[in-house]
Simulated scan of single mutants.
Amino acid sequence: MRVLHFVTGGFSGATKVAIDLVEAHNQIQSTENLLVLRRKKTTVPEKLAELEEKNVDYRVITGATHIATVQELKKLCEKWQPDILVAHGFPEHLLGRRAGLLAKVPHLVQVEHNSKERYTPWKLYQTRKLSKSTARIVAVSEGVAQVLSQQGLKAPIQAIPNGIDTARFGGAELFQVTERPKDIIMVGRYAKSKDHVTLIKALYQLKKRGINSTLTLVGSGGKRYQKEIHNLVKGYDLQNQVTFIEYSNEVEKLLLQHKIFVMSSRFEGLNLAVLEAMASGCIVVGSTAMGVKELIDDKKDGFLFPVGAAAELADIIATVLSNPSNYQALATAAREKVLVHYDKKQVTQAYYQLFQDLLTSH
């Protein structure tokens, strides 16, 4: 079985999932796997070096124009001859399936990683048309599956929730919340959908109450939005409280140092960073956005606050920081949930079974 995964080279959550699948399926002797990245500004040598360390076979193709991407991927498919082409995320699932059709790849699979994408009427027409030639559409959560079911697609839709490496996050060095020296962390790319603004506003409200909590922001992404967040931090005079880390290959260690993890997104597919924080024993606070709220049982294994509600977020953080030991049980319950339901071994096995089923049915 030869499987080609096509995904953004921006190293987003979708890229993570594709890498995990290739890495896991490489352990199966009957499977050959190729990761194809559409070049972005954040397709940097450090991240590609990590792929080489993991022995992931990859190619980087142009992202200059959509037509150029499709043509280059078509030629690569004709040369590599995959049995299955898995196109992850938007707009890559449109470009990947178009290239796969032109190259006559036997089985096309779309993986939708988000609950809200920029589907213009023309893009929606394209995805409906491509669905007629698609063997399976995979949604990364039940919420995303519900959104897809309203698009008028012709291919079968299957939900396979994303998962994480539970051995990497948390592990044997799991610290109690009270033993962690730093207060708050958020891991996420800079995009308006992640809504860092609400978190910064909440931090400022805490400062006005005399609570000078520390915040670590980990991620890269849109430079304009990143500059907006830096300016907001300066405007609120929070520079001494906020640490910016643009890229880290040791996120698991950073999570272990923090008491609270915040995900302030406006929408998601299924947020891997939330799962990583839960596995790491953080007290997780998430917005009620789709793709976040499904993961957190409010006041049982974390906290939820309304999307964009800085005051409510500040209240939750203040409550937790006033006596973190009171909420250790929530952090423990969150880790147990991830171990049982969101280990990536279950995810990779589900995808492998899907691929086997496609080949068998053919």
Rank of each mutant, 00 (worst) to 15 (best):
R2N: 04
V3G: 01
G13F: 08
V17K: 02
I19D: 06
L37G: 04
R38C: 02
R39A: 12
K40Q: 14
L51Y: 12
E53A: 15
E53P: 04
K54R: 13
D57E: 12
R59V: 10
V60W: 01
T62D: 07
T62S: 15
I67N: 12
I67A: 15
Q71P: 04
Q71K: 15
K74M: 13
L76P: 07
E78F: 09
Q81C: 12
D83G: 05
V86P: 05
V86D: 14
H88P: 03
G89Y: 11
F90Q: 05
H93E: 14
L94I: 03
L95K: 05
R97M: 03
R98N: 10
V105G: 00
H107Q: 00
V109T: 08
E112V: 14
K116C: 05
K116G: 05
E117K: 13
E117T: 14
Y119G: 09
P121L: 00
R128V: 12
K129L: 11
S133A: 06
T134R: 07
V138S: 00
A139Y: 06
S141T: 07
S149Q: 12
Q150D: 13
P161M: 02
I164C: 04
R168Q: 15
L174R: 08
K182D: 14
I184D: 01
V187N: 01
Y190W: 07
A191W: 09
S193C: 09
H196D: 04
A202L: 11
Q205A: 11
I211F: 13
N212E: 14
N212H: 13
R224L: 11
Q226N: 07
Q226A: 15
E228Y: 11
V233M: 12
G235C: 02
Y236S: 01
L238R: 01
V242E: 01
F244E: 02
I245T: 05
E246N: 03
S248E: 03
N249P: 03
E250H: 15
K253T: 11
K259E: 13
M263E: 08
E268Q: 07
L272V: 13
M278P: 09
I283C: 05
V285K: 04
V285W: 06
M290F: 09
I296G: 06
K300G: 06
F305N: 01
P306S: 12
P306K: 00
A311F: 02
A314K: 00
A314R: 02
I316R: 00
A318R: 01
V320M: 03
V320E: 09
L321M: 08
L330K: 13
L330S: 02
A331G: 14
R335M: 09
L339T: 10
H341I: 06
D343S: 03
D343W: 10
K345M: 06
Y351E: 12
Y352G: 02
Q353F: 04
Q353V: 05
L354G: 09
F355L: 03
D357M: 05
D357W: 06
D357A: 15
H362L: 11
